[in-house]
């Protein structure tokens, strides 16, 4: 919610978009849709706590698609990962956070 306030500040100048913007994804469509939904709910629930959001995402993914998922949630980060093919999803959400999940 705090981020939305920040977004509101930006909105004074320019339109801020909060929809999930998938930057790169190689999942199959069903998985991808489910993952996006999961991420959106998690990030909305734990909008102020990225760590918690990441944990929720990871746990849910582990339950749903089998273990050893990894999740990054943050406003700024860099990563260099190797992931199992068809399991990467990298998206922006809420206008200011980036989420990357993958399985390895």
């Amino acid at each position: 919610m705090g981020e939305e306030k920040g977004a509101g500040d930006e909105a004074n100048k320019k339109v801020v978009h909060v929809y999930p913007l998938v930057k790169s994804c190689d999942m199959i469509d069903d998985m991808r849709n489910e993952a996006i939904e999961l991420i959106v709910t998690a990030c909305e629930k734990h909008a102020a706590n990225n760590e918690m959001a990441a944990k929720v995402i990871k746990d849910n993914l582990d339950v749903k698609f089998g273990p050893s998922w990894h999740a990054i949630v943050g406003e700024g980060f860099g990563f260099n990962i190797s992931y199992e093919c068809k399991t990467l999803l990298y998206l922006f959400f809420g206008g200011n956070i980036g989420i990357c999940i993958w399985k390895c």
């Binding site: 339109v15 913007l21 943050g74 406003e75 990563f79 190797s82 992931y83 990467l88």
Partner: peptide, 24 residues
């Protein structure tokens, strides 16, 4: 082993902002 590939990315606020603008 299951096929895997690697990816690297740098993310910061203005990247997100720019991407949103472009996508819109």
């Amino acid at each position: 082993p299951p096929p895997s590939s690697s990816m690297k990315e740098q993310l910061c606020q203005w990247v997100i902002y720019d991407d949103y603008q472009r996508d819109y």
